[in-house]
């Protein structure tokens, strides 16, 4: 018998914000999940009473004191399209927190956070945790192909020997005192026009050997992005943790519906993204 660690909550919707690009942020009451959630962990949410399967969403923010959690989601299928209709004061049912989150290494004092699309939320959570508990100075790169779900403007922080035209930085990251830049294939002002892993590599190239040794990558996003980030990590011999997204049914390890193939002592094994992950060392992932 395992220790109970996943809680089922019937929670009031405290806030529901609708943004461009079909993006939404929902704040939910949370007695338990708010107390135990770590960056990289997720909740499994019933979008409505008539949708059979729950949907997994990374926790973006959690307040232990005020007892709430926040998730960001993008409308995609019928589950999220019905979720967007939920109003403040309505009740939603979710399970959480689920999975193993990111693990900050004490030796790696320069965290490099790379988040793409709906993979941005766990890195926002990680940035908040770094701000609260560490004296690390992370560098944060976010990428999106739709309007970013936050305000951004030219950063007051310069990065030495870095692309001078890439200046856009999210307002709330800037307020934390952290350096950040944005990437998109769209022509957004001040953003790097291209893939986010390319932007990260431009920054990595500005580092000397000592600095490089202190970097650890923490990343979440679509599979092709994570694969590209993993290759950059391997090229520069940087430790890298990636938070994987996969279709899920039970989210407690019972159905093995959400697997990732892992290299384990010269053998390939199937691991469950929900409870064995969703965060894995990128060097262990087997890409076919």
């Amino acid at each position: 018998m395992k220790d109970s660690s996943i809680y089922i909550e019937n929670a009031k919707v405290l806030n529901h914000q609708h943004m461009e690009g079909g993006q939404h942020i929902i704040r939910l009451e949370s007695e338990k999940c708010s107390q135990y959630a770590k960056p990289g962990m997720f909740i499994h949410l019933k979008c409505d009473e008539n949708t059979l399967m729950r949907r997994p969403f990374s926790v973006m923010r959690a307040s232990k004191e005020e007892k709430w959690i926040e998730i960001l989601y993008k409308t995609f299928g019928h589950g999220t399209n019905s979720l967007k209709l939920v109003e403040v004061g309505d009740t939603l049912n979710y399970m959480g927190p689920i999975g193993n989150g990111f693990s900050l290494s004490k030796k790696k004092t320069i965290p490099l956070l790379i988040g793409g699309g709906v993979g941005i939320p766990p890195l926002i959570f990680l940035a908040s945790e770094i701000k609260e508990f560490c004296n690390f100075k992370p560098i944060i790169f976010f990428g999106s192909e739709v309007t970013f779900p936050f305000k951004y403007f030219p950063s007051k922080y310069m990065i030495k020997d870095f692309l001078p035209e890439v200046t856009a930085s999210p307002d709330f990251i800037e307020a934390m005192g952290f350096v950040s830049r944005l990437a998109s294939q769209q022509d957004y002002p001040g953003c790097y026009k291209g893939f986010i892993h390319e932007l990260a590599e431009h920054w990595i190239k500005t580092l000397n050997t000592d600095q490089l040794d202190k970097v650890c990558i923490y990343s979440c996003g679509p599979t092709p992005m994570l694969e590209a980030v993993s290759l950059v990590a391997r090229k520069y011999k940087i430790d890298c943790q990636i938070c994987i997204e996969e279709h899920m049914a039970c989210a407690v390890g019972g159905c093995a519906g959400c697997i990732v193939k892992i290299k384990d002592n010269n053998k390939i094994v199937s691991k469950r993204v929900c409870v064995d992950g969703p965060v894995f060392k990128s060097s262990t992932i087997y890409y076919e």
Partner: peptide, 15 residues
């Protein structure tokens, strides 16, 4: 196939 090897759901509080 739905509940692993018998103890997976014991992770859930109340189960």
């Amino acid at each position: 196939g739905c509940v692993g090897f018998g103890d997976e759901y014991t992770r859930v509080d109340g189960y």
